[in-house]
Design a protein around this nucleic acid. Sequence first.
RNA 1: GGAGAGGUGGGUGAGUGGCUGAAACCACAGGUUUGCUAAACCUGCGUACCUUUUAUAGGGUACCGAGGGUUCGAAUCCCUCCCUCUCCGCCA
Length: 435
Amino acid sequence: MLDLQFIRDNQDRVRKAMVDKGIGNDSIVDALLKADEERRNLITQTQDTQTRANAAAKEIGILMKDGRKEEAQEAIIENSRLKAELKSLEDGLRSAQEVVDQLQLEIPNVPHESVPVGRTPDDNVVDEEWGEKPIFGFDALAHWELIDTLNLVDFDRGSKVSGAGFPFYLGAGARIQRALTNFFLDEAIKAGYLEVQAPLVVNEDSARGTGQLPDKEDLMYEAQRDGLYLIPTAEVPVTNFHRDEIFAAKELPKRYCAYTPCFRREAGSYGKDVRGLNRLHQFDKVELVHLVRPEDSYAALEDLREHAENLLRKLELPFRRLLMCTGDMGFTQAKKYDLEVWSAGQERWLEVSSISNFESFQARRMKIRYRDEDGGKPQIIHTINGSGLAVPRIVAALLENNQQPDGTIRVPDCLVSYFGASSIGHVRGSDISAH
RNA sequence: GGAGAGGUGGGUGAGUGGCUGAAACCACAGGUUUGCUAAACCUGCGUACCUUUUAUAGGGUACCGAGGGUUCGAAUCCCUCCCUCUCCGCCA
């Protein structure tokens, strides 16, 4: 949510943002400004009337105390008229306010000046590629084939028990995910993040706070009876942790890491895009969240990005970084990077991290503020978050990139102690034969 | 799930219809003074919005869990909802 004053003062930038992001149309801005003007007019009138009514009520109190009953009675009658007037003013104000509130939620965040203008994913800028794509002397398999051979994941029974996109992970398949999760958390803790375990369901206010509502209901599973949503990412509970709070300046920055399963309803496309571990309705992820002063947010964005990239380097996975264009970056972001990992069996890039600066857009909705050392009014903070990292796609890439001629999978050095072995399926089936 | 109690400013906590945006204390910030692992005293100290032809300034309105209602006037009375605590039951 953008500041109303900002929208008033920067109409052109806001209109351009909507065009560049390809969201709505700028008649919303006109409607908003008109409703806002009406709202402010009504506020002025309403408050003016209230001032008079308050004065009258006070006067009546004094008259009553002095025992001047008749004068008081006259004043009461007089004041009743004011009250009726007030009623209609308030009704008008309420509906004007509703219009403003609703339209304000329909205006997207303004992209940072460094963000390329573009319409489609093709307009995203590839910032950097790192690492060597592996070259095999044999036919490289896709991870779903490797998974089958090594019996790491059971998709069919997942479908039976829950539905498509809810797999069971078995034996080494389960353990490699646990190893990755622990590795990610430990790295984050080393970097100074505070680990949190968050609720996996949130209420409507929280979903609105981080921008999942309104309009993105379809993204989330809903427990309607209890008014709760399954979290699509730990970003939602972790950022809302500080909703409606005012920090002292010295308390910032706040940096949190959280491992949670993530639930996504998104229908998505069919075929290869959703094959295997590429796209699931439930997946594990470690999320990183920063709450910072406004002037620090772009440095924090780079810091988080660097952290996530280092994880990929340690995992020895080739990856590239995309700077997302205006049309592909989303409603709430001011600037966003995607990290994509090379998956050698499928010969495609898989998104494993999305790192965004929301500036004050989320924090304004959540009323997360801080007070500067100099005192003065509380100011809205900035929020940044990013994955560090999404687990199943890392597994997919790891399986595909590290497959060996003998059918085993090499485990990267950084994971060996977490995983407890230097390869998966070294003795064919030994990990899972017990099952 | 059953029964009861309660939700006031950063904290504790007064306040049962008008002079209370809210006492007091603590915490915090600034100042004075004495000086020595600090104390005493003074002052300040909620948020949002509107507005004043533009100010680290003034004026106004709203907010005492949330939303409605009664009243000329509500933190104070009524209704609904949410939350917290205690006891009982159940339970990883």
